[in-house]
Every structure is written in structure tokens, then in C-alpha cells.
């Protein structure tokens, strides 16, 4: 009986030391410079993003207020023109009939020696799909909630894509487009079209017609540093 108790005491002692040690290590990891820096930075970024959403909402509100001000006879026309220009500029939330196109990496299991690069989605693929959608008369497009502007780039960075200057998206990519649902669907699913080419590599392309989709406004401020009105 006594020997057993000794053994238990020994186990307890070792356990206690391990516990204390573990605790200190964890604390130290959290305190190391890079981790702390990154934590602080990501807190700052999320704070700034909150600010951005707030500013975005207040800008939209101010635009609505401006639209509701008493107007003269010619101003109705002006307001209509403004509405059109805003749709094209991408600064308002829009809704209408359209499609939802879902793109995802290949589900094919690679055989040894095959190049995996062929089976993942590339920025070019996304660009081509977008181009088809545009050619089919899409009036407003967004990917994973990011509105597409005239200046929106699509770039591959590792497994993710970057667009609208550092807005990072990960697959699956959901492209929402407003326009004639049948034309839009046809442009993607057409024989020999972009979906067929991508599906050859096992990349998953899904098109869904939806009677009412919503495309968000561009999240950020638009400003031109180089371009000035000509003339």
C-alpha cells in the first residue's frame, strides 16, 4: 500500500511541474513579438473595416437625402440620369433578375505525376467567365460580395484571388450578375463554352437562375489620383 501511494505522489509531482511549464510556455508564445504584432495589426484592421462599413452606410444615406430634396421641373430628368450613372459607376446597391454562378476547384483526385496546377481555378478562368457574362449583357456583377468596377482587377495569389485592390477571396467563388437570366445562363452553358472547357479539368461550374438577386455597392471610396476631366 505504501509503495503505491509513493508512486501516486510522484505522478502528482511530475504532473504539477508539467502543468506549470505548459502554462508558462503558452504565455510566452503569446507574448512573442511577431504574434503580438500580428494580433494588434489584425485588431486594427478589423476596427478600420468596421469604420469603413459605417462610412459606406452614411455615404449611401447622404445620397438618398440628396435625392429627396425638393426639386424643380428639370430636376426629375437630372435625377433619372443620376440613377443611371450610379448603376454604371457601381456606387449603389442593385437588385433584379439574374444568375448566380458558382466556381470551385477541381474535385478530381490526382494521379501521381499529374500537374495539380491544371486542376485549380486560375484568375484567367474567372476573367473568362466574367467576360462571357458581360458579353451576355450583364448590367451589374459582384463576386463574393465585391462589386466589379471598370477598374477591378482579378489576380491569383496562391489559393486565393485578389480584386478591388487587396480584397482577398477564397473559393468557392460566387458570381452574382443582374441581367436576362436565360441569356446569362446560356452564355456560360453554351456548347463549347467556358463551362465545358473548365469542366474538362474537373472544375465545378454551377449556374442558377434567380428571379431576384442583389448586387452590393463597391465597398470603398472611388478616387482618381491621375485622371482629370479632359477639356
Amino acid at each position: 500500500m505504501k509503495g503505491f501511494q509513493w508512486a501516486l505522489a510522484l505522478v502528482g509531482l511530475v504532473l504539477g511541474i508539467m502543468l506549470a511549464f505548459q502554462f508558462r510556455v503558452t504565455r510566452e508564445i503569446n507574448k512573442t513579438e511577431p504574434v503580438q504584432r500580428a494580433q494588434r495589426m489584425s485588431a486594427e484592421v478589423s476596427q478600420l473595416k468596421k469604420e469603413r462599413d459605417y462610412l459606406q452606410a452614411s455615404v449611401s444615406e447622404l445620397r438618398a437625402t440628396l435625392d429627396q430634396l425638393p426639386a424643380g421641373p428639370r430636376d426629375t430628368e437630372l435625377k433619372e440620369e443620376l440613377e443611371m450613372a450610379r448603376i454604371l459607376a457601381g456606387v449603389t446597391e442593385l437588385s433584379g433578375p439574374g444568375v448566380e454562378v458558382t466556381l470551385n476547384d477541381s474535385n478530381i483526385t490526382l494521379k501521381p505525376g499529374e500537374n495539380p496546377n491544371l486542376y485549380v481555378l486560375h484568375d484567367e478562368d474567372v476573367l473568362r467567365v466574367l467576360n462571357e457574362i458581360r458579353a451576355a449583357g450583364a448590367e451589374a456583377i459582384s463576386i463574393n460580395g465585391q462589386r466589379l468596377l471598370a477598374s477591378t482587377e482579378i489576380r491569383c495569389t496562391g489559393p486565393t484571388i485578389v480584386l478591388n485592390k487587396n480584397k482577398r477571396l477564397a473559393p468557392p467563388y460566387v458570381i452574382t450578375a443582374i441581367g436576362n437570366p436565360d441569356t446569362l445562363e446560356g452564355s456560360i452553358k453554351m456548347k463549347g463554352g467556358v463551362a465545358e472547357t473548365l469542366q474538362f479539368w474537373g472544375i465545378q461550374v454551377g449556374v442558377k437562375k434567380i428571379p431576384q438577386v442583389t448586387v452590393p455597392p463597391y465597398s470603398g471610396g472611388i478616387s482618381f489620383d491621375y485622371a482629370k476631366a479632359a477639356g
Binding site: G72, R74, L78
Partner: peptide
């Protein structure tokens, strides 16, 4: 109010690509 609407319109038209722009490039 009319003037303001006009100036807002011209700003949005610039974003949308409905006005000619010039600059370095």
C-alpha cells in the same frame, strides 16, 4: 438644388466612365 444635382451628376458620370478623362499614363 439644381446646381448641386448637376455637380453630383458630373462626379458620378466621371466614376462611371461617361466623361472623357486625361492624365499621365
Amino acid at each position: 438644388a439644381s446646381e448641386v444635382l448637376e455637380s453630383e451628376l458630373s462626379k458620378i458620370r466621371m466614376y462611371a466612365g461617361l466623361t472623357p478623362l486625361s492624365g499621365p499614363g
